[in-house]
Design a protein around this nucleic acid. Structure first.
Lengths: 102, 102
DNA sequence: TAAAACACTTTGTAGCGCAAAGTTAATTTT
DNA sequence: AAAATTAACTTTGCGCTACAAAGTGTTTTA
């Protein structure tokens, strides 16, 4: 059978899975963009982004005053984040395949 | 983007996802078989099976004394459980597809 | 220069995953 | 045949985390 213990708990969480999926297609993305696109509350989003940042799956960049007047924090996926996500996706594929051709 | 709110929280949980995957290929299965195959602790397994039973995704059958001397509880996936799981799998496929061909 | 709008942060709580300990019943041992 | 052991679940309790409501500091508008 599939080894479900391999399913990275950092990624296997609705909100973080959606963030990773979003950031995979285009990075970096601003906090506000992620928030509106994924319809997550401020508090919920920041905690998940913090988790992903702590795990070094995403990288945080705070815009300085020179860049723009208002503060703007952006996030992009890191190399190790991409690796972890690819591994995660392989298991998803295995699950789908397994249920189709058991 | 993919609508992650559609991701059924009952299924989107490592242990329950593994149980659903297992029961999809062959039902019914005994408590002990599930436990040893998925390497879950007794307490952990029963709570997840209870959740799935409460949601009517699986059906519980307790063997009567006539069937066997020792008690033996078996679980099989229900029709609505299969439906829910198929819907869940469609989203998994969408995620995989999205990351491959964004 | 108030006050309203942004862009995050912090805080509090409710709920859940998990395993250790408990319960009941059936074998096996003495 | 009584006691001990094994089997098959169940219950209980803790620790963690997702989530939103309230808070903070800055910037723009009236």
């Amino acid at each position: 059978m599939i080894d479900f213990t391999q399913l990275d708990p950092v990624i296997h969480e609705k909100a973080r899975l959606s963030i990773m999926t979003l950031l995979t297609t285009r990075s970096p993305r601003a906090f506000q963009d992620i928030k509106s696109e994924l319809k997550l509350s401020d508090g919920n989003l920041i905690t998940h982004l913090r988790t992903l940042t702590r795990e070094k799956y995403v990288h945080e960049t705070k815009a300085t005053a020179a860049d723009s007047a208002r503060q703007c924090t952006s996030y992009e996926i890191t190399a190790s984040g991409q690796n972890a996500f690819q591994t995660y996706l392989k298991i998803l594929e295995a699950i789908v395949r397994h249920t189709k051709y058991p």
